[in-house]
Amino acid sequence: MTLTPEDVAQVALLARLRVSPAEVEMFTEQLTKIVGFVEQLNELDTSNVEPLAHGVEVFNVFREDKVEPALPRAAALANAPEHNDECFIVPVVIE
């Protein structure tokens, strides 16, 4: 399929990436080329094939429900761009 600049702008919004008009143009061309390449997969008849999400399939891993020390709050906050003593601070969510 051929992606349009509108498709790319919509994907960028979903991906939370600010893109300039020049980047929209570049990604439209590059993504169309890559999507065209991966469309080889459509040659395969997969009607009776189960999807494989992990190469080595592991099921039902259990552990004891034991309380362990968690990351101290100060350590969890230490890398935040903005924080106070107990919270991450972000710009206005609802105006």
Binding site: V35, V38, L41, N42, L44, T46, V49, E50, P51, L52, A53, G55
Partner: peptide, 15 residues
Amino acid sequence: DQYYNQALKARRLIR
């Protein structure tokens, strides 16, 4: 379905 699920099925065939 067209892309992601088809890729996972191809992955099964590869394995």
